[in-house]
């Protein structure tokens, strides 16, 4: 039957399950994100650190005999502490930066347009809860970052395990779990802060600047405080320091002395919890004017 001849009719077929609704939101937003060629190029570039790391793993194990001309430099590289100086800085730290950049670019564009265009009544008048809506938006960022951080990171760890001596993976089981855990904690923290800013500012450029400013100004104040007081309290304002401490602990690398571990967790949890509370207050079908 032609589309034009169809009348209005109720749906008699099956309905999808409620748990699928966040996935719908995530899928449509992901395809919207990749509609931009510029972003696609940027996203492909985000695989570069993982690619370089893969090359370095290959060189480390396979080309040792062929690069005698590098002399001591190569010798030192291959003898370096495998966790601290190589996998940690080769995989986890670049992943943190890549995750930050992706959240900076995508995060502010996820909520602000919906609020600006008054789309919330449309979402929430359906069998979709606030939490499902937010989960859908979070999934966008978690998916984007996972594909360029811990998923290739796991492949790199597996590649390293393959080339290394037998039993390396079993001896270093904290590495894959730490990698996934650190990336998820960091991405979730960044994502919730970015979404909250996006929801409150309701204007993408301002939310992007606000997100960037939060880190730049936080780091500046924190470093200033640390320099003047001489103790670690300033690091509480620097989320990079906090994830460094937490990441090293999860990864099994040498502990950082930037701040005590519980304080690092608290430093990450506090802004995330505050942002989540702010998000829940902002995501509503209608504003009530008092």
């Amino acid at each position: 039957m032609s589309l034009r001849q169809h009348g209005f009719r109720t749906h008699a077929g099956p309905w999808t399950r409620s748990v699928a609704r966040p996935l719908v939101i995530a899928r449509y937003n992901l395809s919207g994100v990749f509609a931009s060629r510029l972003f696609t190029i940027f996203y492909v570039a985000c695989f570069l650190p993982s690619f370089l790391c893969m090359v370095s793993i290959y060189l480390r194990y396979k080309l040792e005999t062929f690069v005698g001309f590098t002399g001591n430099a190569w010798h030192e590289f291959t003898r370096a502490d495998i966790l601290d100086d190589w996998l940690y800085y080769g995989i986890l730290q670049p992943s943190e930066w890549v995750a930050f950049l992706i959240v900076l670019v995508v995060g502010p564009s996820l909520l602000a347009p919906d609020l600006k265009d008054n789309a919330m009544p449309l979402y929430l008048s359906r069998p979709v809860t606030k939490l499902q809506y937010l989960l859908g938006k979070l999934l966008v960022l978690l998916t984007l970052t996972a594909a360029v951080t811990w998923l290739p990171g796991l492949l790199l760890v597996l590649a390293n395990a393959y080339y290394a001596d037998d039993g390396w993976l079993m001896d270093n089981l904290t590495v894959p779990f730490g990698l996934v855990g650190s990336c998820l904690v960091w991405t979730a923290c960044l994502s919730i802060i970015a979404l909250a800013l996006s929801a409150w500012v309701r204007w993408r450029p301002a939310a992007t600047l606000g997100f960037l400013g939060l880190f730049v100004i936080g780091s500046a104040i924190g470093n200033l405080f640390r320099a003047t007081s001489g103790d670690w309290y300033g690091s509480l304002l620097i989320l990079w320091d906090a994830i460094d401490v937490v990441g090293r602990d999860l990864f099994g690398a040498n502990p950082s002395e930037l701040m005590p571990l519980p304080w690092a967790w608290a430093s990450l949890a506090a802004p995330t919890a505050l942002s989540f509370w702010a998000l829940l207050r902002r995501i509503r079908a209608y504003e009530v004017v008092r």
Partner: peptide
Amino acid sequence: RDSFVGGM
């Protein structure tokens, strides 16, 4: 009020 999802 005007309500839509932009960019689509």
